[in-house]
Write a protein that binds this DNA or RNA. Sequence first.
DNA 1: CTGTATCCAAAGTGATACTG
DNA 2: CAGTATCACTTTGGATACAG
Lengths: 118, 118
Amino acid sequence: MTNNFSTLPVAGESCPMVSFVNLISGKWAIPILYRLMVIDEPVRFSDLQRAVHPITQKELTRQLRQFEARKLVTRQVFAQVPPRVEYQITELGKSLRPTLDSLAQWMRNNAEQLQEQL
Amino acid sequence: MTNNFSTLPVAGESCPMVSFVNLISGKWAIPILYRLMVIDEPVRFSDLQRAVHPITQKELTRQLRQFEARKLVTRQVFAQVPPRVEYQITELGKSLRPTLDSLAQWMRNNAEQLQEQL
DNA sequence: CTGTATCCAAAGTGATACTG
DNA sequence: CAGTATCACTTTGGATACAG
């Protein structure tokens, strides 16, 4: 054996960084979350869809359900016809903002060095 | 028009957060990057593969090439036979660590609230 | 209006064999 | 040893139609 790093603590399955990436991965995750952060009040499904266009109904629903399961977003249904459903970012969701901002800041600071189209 | 958020600054194509997510997305991106950060010296391809198992050669190559293009990793080829290629994290790559650490910290702090298997 | 269901295309990933 | 090539499979996402 020349070299063996295989027993170091791996950034594997239960690694918080990997979990974090899973949380915000997906084409529309950040756009939706960011919108809800900016709006910071209840928004109707259709308004949100317009704000995050051109997302499809299916994808918006799927991502919102995932955020809801993670307690990043609340979903409130009004017993009306036509239906009215409002989504709103939670305190937990908002607490992500400073972290995401520091990410964005690093990205802006180093955009040039990273070259390639990003 | 009842509500119109569609002209707010969108977290769209050129949003730094989206760019950041693209940078670290993919099943093996974080595990590889984290390993290179921890090791912090030149590593041979095969040693790295063992350290990030069970990644395939194809995926390790692909991800390393992408990091190289983004200047997060250097690649040095030695004119030997059998071939010897060493990869090493750059200063730019290392500069990502505090940011990733704060990500991980947020995740650890809120793991319970996020519930669901993560 | 807010979904769900279906079908399809594209992207991501793994297994394996092969090359210099 | 360090890749590349090929193929199969899975996951993701988009388009469209439809239901309550």
